[in-house]
Each structure stands twice: as C-alpha cells, then as structure tokens.
C-alpha cells in the first residue's frame, strides 16, 4: 500500500517535470509575449502543485510537509500575480497580442 502511494507520488513528480519542460518549450516557441506568459505561468503553478502533491505523497505528514505547503502557497500567490503584472505592463507599454494566425500577420496589426 505504502509502496503504491510512493509510486503514485513519483509519478506526480515526473508529471510535474514534464509539464515544466512543456512550459519551457512553449515559452521558446510561442509567437508573442502574452502566449509566452500564458505558457509559463500555467505550467509553473501546475508543476509546483503536482510536485508538492508528489512529495507530500512520498513523505507523508512531517514538519517538512508543512514547509512544502508553505512553498506551494507562496508560488500559488506570487506566480499568477507576477504574470498578471507582466502582462499588464506589456499591454501598457504598447505591445498588442497577435490575433488570428501568427504565420500570416494581418495588415491591420499595429
């Protein structure tokens, strides 16, 4: 039983790392600032949640588990706020999101 829980925990951690790499590829490949912010912020919070869950499953209840939860709370609080602020700043300084197909930019794009 405990063995099975530990395996599920490690599966969560692997999933978190996979999500992290997927997010990094998204940040590298996506066409404009907003899609990149989207890729990074979703995968960051997702990876943090999955990884915390995985480590909690593997470690069980301990003082370290409480600290893990604090780390998770901090990431869940700060990462979306930072992404929001970044997107707001990018929009405020004149960057506009690419609408439509990015490979064929339309004429009315600023």
């Amino acid at each position: 039983m405990l063995e099975a829980i530990a395996w599920i925990g490690s599966a969560f951690i692997i999933a978190a790392v996979g999500l992290s790499i997927a997010g990094a590829v998204g940040v590298l490949r996506f066409p404009d600032v907003y899609t990149r912010i989207h890729a990074a912020s979703i995968t960051d919070t997702g990876a943090a949640s999955l990884m915390t869950l995985g480590m909690l499953l593997m470690a069980g209840l301990s003082p370290a588990a409480i600290k893990l939860c604090i780390v998770w709370l901090f990431i869940m609080l700060t990462s979306p706020a930072a992404a929001h602020a970044l997107a707001g700043a990018a929009f405020g300084s004149g960057h506009r999101p690419i609408l439509g197909d990015p490979r064929r930019p339309s004429e009315d794009e600023t």
């Binding site: 600032v33 990149r36 990462s79 992404a83 970044l86 700043a89 300084s93």
Partner: peptide
C-alpha cells in the same frame, strides 16, 4: 523586455 523578465521569473520558479 517582458520576455526577458518572464524568463527570469520562470527560471526562478523552477
């Protein structure tokens, strides 16, 4: 510049 800041932020989270 915002791409760069985003990269730093995401790097930090990782």
């Amino acid at each position: 510049a915002y791409d760069r800041v985003l990269a730093v932020n995401s790097f930090g989270t990782k």
